[in-house]
Simulated assay, not measured.
Amino acid sequence: MPLLTVSQAWAVLAVAILMEVGGTTSMRLAEGFTRLTPSLMMVLFYAVSFTLNTMVIRVLGLSVTYGVWSGVGTVLTAMIGIYYFKEPATAVKMVSIGLIVIGVMGLHSATRVGT
Rank of each mutant, 00 (worst) to 15 (best):
V72W: 06
L52M: 13
A110C: 08
A47Y: 10
M19W: 10
T90E: 13
V101Q: 00
V113T: 15
T54W: 12
G114Q: 15
I97N: 03
G103M: 07
V92R: 11
T111N: 15
R112Q: 15
S39W: 01
V15M: 09
A11V: 13
L29T: 04
S109F: 13
T65S: 12
L29P: 10
S96N: 06
A14M: 11
G71V: 00
E31I: 01
G103V: 00
L13D: 02
G61H: 03
A11M: 10
P88A: 14
T74H: 04
L18C: 09
V68R: 02
W10S: 09
F33Q: 12
R112N: 09
T90A: 08
A30L: 12
I80D: 11
E31A: 03
S7I: 14
I102P: 00
E87G: 04
E87V: 07
E20R: 13
I80A: 11
A11P: 04
L62P: 03
R35D: 05
T24P: 10
R35W: 10
L62M: 15
T74A: 10
M27S: 09
E20L: 10
I100S: 06
M94Y: 01
M79G: 05
S7L: 13
A89V: 09
L18A: 14
H108R: 15
L40V: 12
R58S: 03
M41R: 09
I102K: 01
T54S: 14
E20S: 14
M41A: 13
S96A: 14
T90W: 02
T25H: 12
T115I: 08
H108N: 11
W10K: 08
L40D: 09
W69M: 03
R35F: 03
I102F: 05
